[in-house]
Design a protein around this nucleic acid. Structure first.
Lengths: 227, 227
DNA sequence: GAGCCTTAATGAGCGTAACTCATCAACGAA
DNA sequence: TTCGTTGATGAGTTACGCTCATTAAGGCTC
């Protein structure tokens, strides 16, 4: 077993401080000193491990996102996806929130990079919504981003601490609902009509996709680029 | 100088791990071993110190709140007050977010108690707004609470890490604005457009869920089929 | 195959810091 | 003066991250 695999197993199982370097070395069939040929420090090893996990877990969410249409649905997917990741990996979450995010060198980490990408996706979705007239133009996007990410942190905190669980789908629903209401253009009839139109358009697209999956030959039908 | 004062000075100045018990003892004109007559462990001492700080800083915010009327204004005050506290005490914030909140014994802490009181105030304000008909009755209060607290965490993170500052008043304004819009009662409940919109929105969400269930992670590529 | 050189692994050891415990000083009572 | 009790003391103990001189291994030249 190589160092990364051994370290991952022990970090996830015991947490950062309880994990001792000698045990990681032993599980990797090495001696303690040899670890320091590959990783400068215990914390450096942790960062490498968490980066690897993070990358696996959030692997292709952007490709999945590409298959989802509609501002609201896309927003919901982003929230739901992160909630599920947190729900499935509480151990990893603990490591991240306790020993990665609060460290000074977090900003030079790949994890920071990945979090920025996630945030950028949210920004893009909101921007799309604004240009489509579906969302208010004055929306401070940084605030939306921070509220979503901070909210996810809070909402998953109890589960991460081993106290109770949560329903990812339902939580995503309610959170999306609230955020969207804060984002949505005002209650003028025109705006409502625009949103109605956008929603039914999304519905049509999704239904088409659905139909293509359920169809006899299960053939993919090109639905986009129609204009 | 007594132990608490010495510990507070050193914890705030150097952070948790850099603070060493022998130095705290020295500043309190004691010897290291004597600390353990009064506090079982280093972390126990930290908790005592942070509790004291917390209580001083958030001393009489509820009295100030009592002088503010209007759901929106009261909500803004709560947000603003916490933002200012975070802005004025970044060192304390670091201790709290890194070494108090993530610990297993946090729930048995006075700090947890104080946070609950803060959250309860937010709940009360929202409840008032609902009974006054100003806010939507279906509002999930737990969500609002979590979004606000998580958002404050995120928004103050950079400053806590020593990177840049923020304008507490303006941030509070924008945050309140967004949250309130999510909370505010829309048109009449029997407004046809609103009902229609809600229904088609739900339908769209359901269809998206359906699609992702049918094609596991393949909503977008159903182009090739392997026979 | 013999000598040599570069590179990688070893494990004994160091430094530090939280925490403990046998000891001892201070002080009141006999 | 002597004894008993209380509470501070500081010299350990332990644990763990990290280092470094030494040794083994694997390829390259003659």
């Amino acid at each position: 077993m190589d160092i990364m695999a051994a370290a991952r197993a022990i970090f996830l199982e015991k947490g950062y401080e309880e994990a001792v370097m000698s045990e990681i070395a032993a599980r990797a069939d090495l001696v303690e000193g040899s670890l320091y040929r590959f990783f400068d420090t215990k914390h450096g090893l942790l960062i490498a491990v968490v980066e690897a996990c993070y990358e696996e877990i959030l692997a292709d969410y952007d490709q999945q996102l590409a298959g989802i249409s509609g501002v609201r649905n896309r927003l919901r997917f982003m929230i739901w996806r992160m909630l599920v990741a947190m729900q499935d990996n509480p151990d990893l979450g603990r490591l991240v929130y306790r020993h990665i995010l609060p460290e000074a060198n977090y900003l030079s980490t790949r994890i920071y990079e990945l979090n920025r990408e996630y945030a950028a996706h949210i920004d893009n979705i909101v921007t799309e919504g604004i240009t489509a007239g579906e969302l208010r133009a004055e929306t401070p996007m940084w605030l939306v981003r921070q509220l979503i990410m901070g909210g996810i942190d809070q909402l998953t905190w109890r589960h991460r601490m081993g106290l109770g669980d949560f329903d990812a789908a339902q939580t995503a629903d309610e959170m999306t609902d609230f955020i969207y209401r804060g984002l949505a253009a005002g209650g003028h009839p025109d705006d409502v009509a625009a949103r109605l139109e956008a929603t039914s358009r999304d519905l049509s697209t999704t239904a088409t996709q659905l139909a293509s999956m359920l169809g006899p030959q299960n053939v993919y039908t090109e639905t986009k680029k129609s204009d």
